[in-house]
Amino acid sequence: MGRKILTAILATAILLPFLFFGMLSVGQAWFYPSVLPQRFTLANWQELLAGQSELQVSLLLSVILGLGVAILSTVAGFVISREIARAKYKNRWLLLAYWPFVLSPVVLAILVQRFFLLTGMSGEVIGVLLGQLILAFPFAVIFFQSFWSHEVLQLEQQSQTLGATAVYTLQKVLLPLARPLLLICFFQTFLISWFEYGLTQFIGVGKVKTLPILVFKYVNEANSSHAALASLLIMLPPALLLWTNKKFIFRGI
């Protein structure tokens, strides 16, 4: 009995953010002390469909940035993690990869901002992309370490002695074997970009308006219905991804 009640409470708590934001995003005139808004409207959501609206542009920008970061960091991470995994002082290299990973993104942004100012990338999409890569790429390198096991090395050698070139081995052996991990890494690095606020704000100087930047802007304007809508736009795509594969969001150990 106690277990059932606790389960119900937990389930409610987990679903609450989605329901609450859903209500805020369609509510108008939410005056104290009523729990529900007085009117409901789909106007905010319709804005999304209207061409060139702030929300639409920002959604598109977030998707493009996320895809860019995910593709670049997954590909580069896969190739370079192999080199690191086979390096003589593997652990020292890996420790270096942990640095950007543990630093607060915004503190990292403070330290590197000068570079982006000098190169004119500050406030540009390309600058934010590069900044987010600094976070996502080391993650990918660490992520793929588990793939380059002794067994994979032996399979690679076996393929070689059977007469295959490096490219053939990559195509027919390594990539098929790594496929599940490549997908997981792709989505996790996508989410690093998708969720990022502090670094984006600092390097994008408010000009590169991704969804998290928009959420903060609406919160500052006390526009809670728009903030809730933008929040939902951030939360729903990964929630849908969960249906496909839980591991895209959380891989365990």
């Binding site: 399979l155 076996q158 070689q160 002695t161 059977l162 007469g163 295959a164 070139t165 074997l177």
Partner: peptide
């Protein structure tokens, strides 16, 4: 000659089949 051109195949205790 790199391994792939030697045609000398190494077979170990583990069969090392391509699992996929």
């Amino acid at each position: 000659a790199p391994p792939r051109n030697r045609e000398m195949v190494y077979l170990s205790q583990e069969p090392l089949l391509f699992p996929h």
